[in-house]
Write a protein that binds this DNA or RNA. Sequence first.
DNA 1: AAATTCAGCGAACGGCTGTTTACTGAATGA
DNA 2: TCATTCAGTAAACAGCCGTTCGCTGAATTT
Lengths: 211, 211
Amino acid sequence: MSHTSGVRQAQKEKTRRALMDAALGLLEDQSLSSLGLREVTRAVGVAPAAFYRHFRDLSDLGVALVEECLSSLHHMIGAILAGQDGDEERIEATVDAVAEHVRRYPAHIRFIARERHGGVRPVRQAIAAELDRFADEVATAFCPRLPAESWPPEDVRMLAEMYVDHMVMTATAFLEAQADHSEAADERRVAATARKQLLLISLGRRHWHDV
Amino acid sequence: MSHTSGVRQAQKEKTRRALMDAALGLLEDQSLSSLGLREVTRAVGVAPAAFYRHFRDLSDLGVALVEECLSSLHHMIGAILAGQDGDEERIEATVDAVAEHVRRYPAHIRFIARERHGGVRPVRQAIAAELDRFADEVATAFCPRLPAESWPPEDVRMLAEMYVDHMVMTATAFLEAQADHSEAADERRVAATARKQLLLISLGRRHWHDV
DNA sequence: AAATTCAGCGAACGGCTGTTTACTGAATGA
DNA sequence: TCATTCAGTAAACAGCCGTTCGCTGAATTT
């Protein structure tokens, strides 16, 4: 039988985590396609050859990072969608949640923003697939709130994509506003803009049947 | 006196253009921070040292590419803002213009999308500054159309940023839809979604005073 | 207790990198 | 016509890269 938590497997997992964490750290100043294998192993303190015990290559590690970074975002989205408040309350909660998420996991957001259109195809595809799943969830969560006669499935999908894209956009804006040598006022300005933009979308959504 | 179009200066300009074009081509499969100086000169057919006659380093070339790529976008925006049609006509014209622009200059859009959050700071800053100028133009173009009592300058700015971000978003969506091994239906779907999203924003804008 | 697995090591490999140097020779200016 | 400028060259530099190899020794299995 194969133990799932032997001393050996635990050490391997630990090294794997260290590689991923080191890579995420190094990726704050460069993009994945320029990250070096030796660079990562050097930061962890293991031999270059050890890398191959965990990942086929760097784009393999990148895909693993996508899952990690977007699963943390996924939890945040789930919490927001679970809330049953009105429009204004939900907007407030959403912007606050995004701001705190960026504050807690800045490297995650930077990685997603940077590699979403980056130079490594498998990573791009992994991010796109995951964001598509997010849009699905948003769509199914919004479905019961929208009158079915004026909201065909494709329109609901359009709205959901808009929310997801806006969330990513807002997160990267927070990231820049929270960067070193930025003032707290920048962050408040980003939050105010995001709230207004979400309100604008809400207004458009309420009057969608007028068309 | 210094001639602006001597035989010598013309040849220099030619090599400079060749370097920029070669770089833009190579950047379709990787990002700027992984692009090699020798790689670029090899593609052009000149010695590596010749590069330094034109650019300090690769991020310098990147900034030059930003100006080139965004100036072509800038012309497109100007043409759209000059149109005096109604909402639906403007939406139609905008989406068509973006689609054709992406079809004509796919490498430009890819570069902007990839390096907007990429690993080279000076390039990021150049893109951000230029997109900020775009938002300014959109804001001043929309200002006379909006009732001043319900549209303070910050709200106009918020709307303008939303339009600019949505345009970049739409352009990258077209880029993926026009990629090899994609069907024409994908492009039509992107166009339909973009039109609906712009319509949603228009509806929100019309009811902004309700708040 | 003996056999096996396997994460990590150290060394070596050919190849590519950015940058500097002194140079050539055609376009330019006096 | 003669001197100067300067875009592009060829060669060399030290340094880093990804990848492969056989090996070690502790955790695991039999």
